[in-house]
């Protein structure tokens, strides 16, 4: 098929704004970060080439706890998969069946997604407060903890990581619930009815009819949830601070090294984050394709 030159020009004109943004802000910085990451560079001094020393330092010293951070975000991603997403799916299935107050429940459950993460962080900070907070009294009233006053956010304490993970999991349940709800609703009612005529129970309809046909949405949710975990920052930073060890994530290491001018180390952390995100996305895509 022969194309007119004017068409080629049109294609370029229409693609240009997107390409400029994409290459200028996403692609070029990936390459530049890769380049910076092999330099020993303390801003504003000059940079000197150091090979993979930055990566080595990040993975072996506790001062820059990237390895700890990677382990923490793997835990977070794992918990997202076994707690956050099943919870979202359960809510979506219940709401998708059509239940009284469907609209109200959808609205309320989506609300935390719209509230600024900073506000949620500051709020949970107060709620966790050992003396004036609400988490300790609540847990005590249902008998989960005894008389002790747990210092949830004590710097590098045993509870710090879990205290950060809980609101992280909680905030985005509504996001995934609404995505999955869309998937549930897009299942043709005839399919549902046919299964019910065949004698399927509600649970069987969900398991064998609804869930298999929402594979696309589930894949999107899994990718967003896992990559979101790998690059998480906001709540950890507010609840535990950027210099935390116990609750370190790769992004806190990145921000911490950046704030003291260690741009080489910071860029190396960025490279690690993007490698993790890409690897996760490719892996998840492959797993979903295999199930076809």
């Amino acid at each position: 098929m022969k194309r007119k030159t004017s068409d080629t020009i049109s294609i370029i004109v229409f693609l240009l704004p997107a390409l400029i943004l994409f290459f200028g802000i996403l692609v070029a910085p990936i390459i530049i970060s890769g380049y910076y990451s092999v330099f020993d560079w303390q801003f504003p001094f000059d940079k000197t080439f150091c090979g993979f020393q930055n990566y080595k330092k990040l993975f072996t010293t506790e001062w820059y706890p990237l390895w700890k951070g990677v382990k923490n975000v793997f835990l977070l991603a794992g918990l997202s998969l076994v707690i956050q997403l099943p919870l979202s799916l359960g809510l979506a299935l219940m709401l998708g069946r059509g239940i009284k107050g469907e609209r109200f429940f959808l609205s309320v459950n989506f609300l935390p997604v719209l509230i600024s993460t900073v506000v949620i962080g500051l709020l949970w900070r107060r709620m966790y407060d050992a003396d004036a907070g609400v988490i300790n009294p609540l847990l005590r009233s249902v008998g989960i903890i005894g008389e002790e006053n747990i210092q949830w956010l004590a710097a590098n304490g045993d509870h710090l990581l879990m205290a950060c993970i809980v609101p992280m999991l909680w905030q985005y349940v509504g996001y995934h619930m609404l995505l999955m709800y869309a998937g549930v609703k897009s299942v043709a009612p005839e399919l549902r009815e046919a299964a019910m005529i065949d004698g399927a129970t509600t649970w069987q309809v969900d398991r064998f009819v609804v869930i298999p046909s929402m594979k696309q949405v589930l894949k999107v949710s899994v990718i967003f949830s896992v990559t979101g975990s790998l690059k998480s920052y906001d709540l950890v930073s507010i609840l535990a601070g950027d210099r935390t060890y116990a609750a370190a994530v790769p992004s806190t290491v990145l921000m911490n090294t950046k704030s003291v001018g260690l741009y080489g180390m910071s860029s190396a952390s960025a490279v690690v984050i993007i490698v993790l995100c890409f690897a996760a996305a490719v892996l998840i895509n492959a797993l979903f394709r295999e199930r076809d």
């Binding site: 990936i30 530049i32 790769p250 741009y263 910071s266 490279v271 993007i274």
Partner: peptide, 8 residues
């Protein structure tokens, strides 16, 4: 992730 473009 936005992190990658931060230093550049």
């Amino acid at each position: 992730p936005v992190q990658v473009s931060l230093v550049p």
